[in-house]
Design a protein around this nucleic acid. Structure first.
Lengths: 159, 159
DNA sequence: TGGGCAAATATGGGCGTCAATGGAATCGCG
DNA sequence: CGCGATTCCATTGACGCCCATATTTGCCCA
């Protein structure tokens, strides 16, 4: 399974602010043929979205469907292109998060990498735990509401 | 990833009014094959649009969709061609913004360069922060209205 | 089955290089 | 000759690369 980002890993930042990208994620990025890690603040979460060409391609694809002079293009491009960073990956597989990125996610001295298939997220560990719990309880409520009719259809199976 | 303007950088103007173009943007301009930086006031924002041949191309493309005898062509050409400037880039990669350009964007002693793929914008830093927040909240509102199934497809952002 | 060896990964630090910035020197038009 | 503009040079600080260490993981073999 080297073509999708899965699982989660928590690594520490060193004194210089560097942090290792999990080895399994590096393998995915390598297959994707990357030069630098593409990162931008999530539009609606206190987290960062990161990835390689696959992530970049989805952004370009979305923007390409709007006229460069439209308001939608302006807003999307400002939020995505304008706040994206292409982080260099050092020979050891580490990156450095800018102050802006760290601030957006509340990152201090450790981060949690969370696989999302074609991309992955970067969280402050405690915030991710809270986010995970929230997601789980949300799913529990949905399941309770639906009762016995929730019969594990493909894609609905979270676990 | 040297073929698109991404991320944002804030640099200061020195006593002579000079400011460095971010190194990564210079790399994009170099690949684009530029001689001087093409700059014009944004049509509807308190910012400046800047770039190389790629920006020139989009402007020409827009104008080509109108008859050279139409009022629209006249207006667009006046606003774009008529107010554009080709700034010289010194050996250190710095430019000097004219008084007209600084006035349009409210620039005093620092500017923020904002990547937009084929071009980039130049903002007064505080104004850009406000603009970015506005863009984000606009996108959040759209997403909230459409619910959790929004996958940012063009048809879904019609609002 | 248990121990230990080896490979890979995460982490820490030193140092050279480059970008941003400030100021001096030089050029050029009036 | 003078003032503004352009080029040249110096400083500072951030960042990239290299090497060292450690901690883990998995493998091999006795």
């Amino acid at each position: 399974m080297t073509d999708r980002f899965v699982s989660n890993f928590t690594n520490r930042l060193d004194a210089k602010g560097r942090v290792s990208i999990p080895a399994s994620f590096r393998a995915v990025l390598a297959k994707d043929g990357y030069e630098g890690l593409y990162v931008h603040p999530s539009l609606d979460l206190e987290a960062l979205d990161a990835g390689g060409h696959a992530l970049r391609a989805t952004i370009d694809d979305i923007l390409s469907r709007f006229s460069p002079f439209s308001d939608e293009w302006e807003s999307l491009s400002t939020a995505l292109n304008g706040t994206s960073e292409v982080l260099k990956v050092d020979p050891e597989g580490r990156i450095m998060l800018s102050g802006t990125l760290r601030a957006h996610a509340g990152i201090v001295d450790a981060v949690t990498f969370v696989g999302h298939g074609h991309k992955f997220q970067i969280w402050e560990p405690a915030r991710f735990q809270a986010h995970l719990e929230a997601a789980r309880s949300r799913l529990r409520n949905v399941k309770r509401t639906l009762g016995s009719h929730m019969t594990m259809t493909p894609g609905a199976t979270g676990a």
